[in-house]
Amino acid sequence: MITMRRFLLELIFAALASIICVLYILFPEPHLMALFVFVAQPMFIFTILSFSIRMLKGARQKKVS
C-alpha cells in the first residue's frame, strides 16, 4: 500500500516552494525572484516528477500483482 510517508519530502518541497512563490508575488524584488527561479522552480519540478514516477510505478505494480 502506498502511504503518504513516502511523499513526505515532496509535500515539504511543495509547501516550501509555494511559500517562496507567494512571497515573490507579494514582494517582487530581485532576491525573491532569484529564489523563485533557482530554488522554488527546481523544487516544483522535483515534486511533480517524483510524484508522477512513483504513482506510475505503483499503478504498474498493481497491474502485475
Binding site: 511523499f7 515532496e10 509535500l11 511543495a14 516552494a17 509555494s18 512563490c21 522554488a40 522552480q41 516544483f44 519540478i45 515534486t47 511533480i48 510524484f51 508522477s52
Partner: peptide, 10 residues
C-alpha cells in the same frame, strides 16, 4: 497538491 498546483504555480 503535488502535481496540479505546483504546475500551476510554475
Amino acid at each position: 497538491a503535488l502535481a496540479f498546483i505546483p504546475l500551476g504555480f510554475m
